[in-house]
Every structure is written in structure tokens, then in C-alpha cells.
Simulated scan of single mutants.
Amino acid sequence: MGRVTGVFDNPPSFPCTPPGVDILEGGKLTSNNVAGSSHDPLQSPAVASGAVSIPGGDTAGQDALHSAGVEGSEDSGARSKLPQPSQEEETLMCLLQHCICVSRPCEILEWCYHPKGSCKGPENWKEINNNCGGDRQSPVNIVTKTTQLDKRLTSFNLTGYKTLFDSTVKKNSHTVEVTLNPTATVSGGNLEDTYKPLQFHLHWGTNGVRGSDHTIDGEQYPMELHVVHIKQKYSNLTEAFQDQSGLAVFGFFLEESNSTNKNFDNLINVLRSIENKSGDVSIKNISASQFILPEENMTSYYRYNGSLTAPNCSESVIWTVFEKTIPLSKKQLEFFSSLKLDDGTPMVGTFRPPQLRSGRTVYRSSSPAVLASVVLLFISITTTFSLSHLC
């Protein structure tokens, strides 16, 4: 379970107004000056910048990215060791932690994939953030016969993806995430701008089956890997979330193979040290390219406008879902199902069910590989028709 924090430009809906705060039109927040107070916490430079540090977590912007697979740790006992917060401090914490005000103190909302205790499952994520009930949510079921050809969906230009670097693997209660080389870039593929990678994370099922976020014609793959990119011109996620194309996420399906994929050996080996707990571990001499498809196999893909697939569910994502799969052995796929939460619960089924397309069009690239299924269907129909006339 994870604490959810938000961005001031997209505040949560509160059943009651937090003490000392008015929620104004346009999503602007201001203090109504708590009686007897001379300090306005909402006017501090850190808050105004959207980069407020929260005890036990990361900055507000980083917590928002945790919705795509990153989570800060929280020391549940820390609060009892600190002085009790003032009314102003409690108000600020309430706003930053997307909580519901139930008199005092605030109740922090948590999200998870499988409801347990106070955490909210996928069907109730909109109670944590209104974005999750929007009409451009992800993932979706891609129905290939209804996709539209877009000849502008050409090949991508990747730079720095083969560069070796040292990084950090983070395991939290929602996913496994690897920080990527920030000097790499991607353009082309009808992306309107140049993007830089932030991290990749994984979604998986149980015992190496049915774990992808997206589905193709109703078929769910064992795993899905997401590479999260932000527009190169943006310095933080707060800016990106205000842009419907601020993020570009690449989705890769992972499928069972008879052979081991050695490119994932290093990742699996370092994860063994935190297999039964949340935490960070170093990983050395990796490249972004080793975890994704070869560049020449990235010409067959689907494209649509959507969102992050977990809270805050920001509808600021250009999705590229690749047709060709990344092979992993059965043993490698099953390893991820062996990971456990801090309480010993198996960490399985880390995916969101498909969301309604709500009139959105899913486009396909002009690569012959994407059209292969259509061609085969046409040949099959033609052959059947010809044979029927011979009888």
C-alpha cells in the first residue's frame, strides 16, 4: 500500500474544506489565514514550486510519478516521535497527501491492486484522485480490427539508449522500477517533441501468466514493461501533467520463451536481495536498450492518447504499445510472482483492468508486421471462398 500525494494544479476533491484553506475555482489553493496565525504555509517557496518534501516520502512531483510505478517509503512510527503538528502544518499535510478531512486528524488514502484494509483497489481509485474516473484512462483493450492506419507513425530515433550506466532498482508495494539514463532521448514516430526517459517499471500477474496492463483483442500477456518519458523541455512532472502529451510511455509485452533472456539476469539477481521487502538496490553496467526490443523491431506499434495506469492517473500520456514481444523464460516470468510485500503477502496481479476507450481512436503504424494479421485474414477468406466454389 502506498501514500498518494498530489500536485497543486490538480487538487483532490475534499468532502470538507481543510481548516485554514479555501479551494477556489480553477484549482487555485489559498489560505484563509487560520485565526491567531501569522504564517501562511501555502505561500512558502517550496509549496509554490510544487516541490515540497514530505516526511517519509519524496517530493510531490516524484510521488506523482510513483503512480506509474515509483513509491517512497514511509516510517509509520515517525509521527509519534515528532512534536504534534500545528493546525497550519496539519492542513498542509492534508493537502499534500490527498486525504479526506474527517474532523481532525486527516485520514490518508492509500491505493493498491488488491483491496485490503483501508487501501483502495482499481475500481475505487477515483476516490483518491478524480483523474482516475476520467474519459482518457489507461490501459485499454486494443481491438486490432478497429484500429486505424496512420502513415505518420514511422520509426523512432533513439539516442543514448545503448550507453552503459549504473543505476538503482526500487521495489515498493506496487512495482519494480529502474531509473534510466537522463541524457538519452527519443523522437520520431510522430511524437510532437523530443522526450527523455525517466524510468522503466513492470506489471505482472500470478505464476508468470496474465499480468499485462494492456490487452490485444482480449489477450492478456504475462508481463508488460513501461518506459516512462517526459518532454525534454520540462524540468519537472508538475509541468508535464499540465500537457496532454507531456509524457510518452512505451509499452512492451513480455512473453514466455523456451530460452532464458540474459539481458534480464542482472535485474533478477539484484532483486533477490530485496525479494521479501521494499527497498533500493544498486545495479551496474546496464543500458536502456537491453530491456526493450531491438530498435529495428520497434516499427510495429499502436498509438493512442491516455493516462498513467495507476494514481494519480494523469491524462497526459501519449501511449505507444509495441506489437512484437520481449521473450523471457518461464522461470524468469515466475520469479516476479515470487516477490513479496513487507507483510509477506505475495506481490502478484500488479495490473489495472482495461478502461473504456470512450470514443478514442487507436492508431496503428504502417509497418507490414502490424498488417500481417489483416493480410492473413484476407487470404483465409479468399481461400475459403474459392474452395466453396469447387464443391
Rank of each mutant, 00 (worst) to 15 (best):
G2V: 08
V4D: 07
V4S: 12
V4A: 14
T5Q: 06
T5H: 09
T5F: 03
V7L: 10
F8P: 03
F8E: 01
F8W: 11
F8S: 05
F8C: 06
D9M: 09
P11V: 08
P11C: 10
P11E: 12
P12K: 08
S13I: 12
S13P: 15
F14G: 01
F14S: 01
F14W: 02
P15F: 01
P15S: 14
C16K: 09
C16R: 10
C16I: 11
C16Q: 12
T17W: 00
T17I: 01
T17P: 00
P18F: 01
P18W: 01
P18L: 00
P19G: 10
P19L: 10
P19C: 11
G20N: 04
G20W: 00
V21Y: 01
V21F: 00
V21P: 00
V21I: 14
D22K: 08
I23T: 13
I23S: 06
I23L: 14
I23D: 04
I23R: 03
L24T: 14
L24H: 13
L24I: 11
E25N: 15
G26I: 06
G27C: 15
G27Q: 12
K28P: 04
K28E: 08
K28G: 08
K28D: 05
K28Y: 11
L29T: 02
L29F: 04
L29P: 02
L29Q: 03
L29D: 03
T30E: 14
N32L: 08
N32M: 09
N32R: 05
N32G: 07
N32Q: 09
N32S: 13
N33E: 14
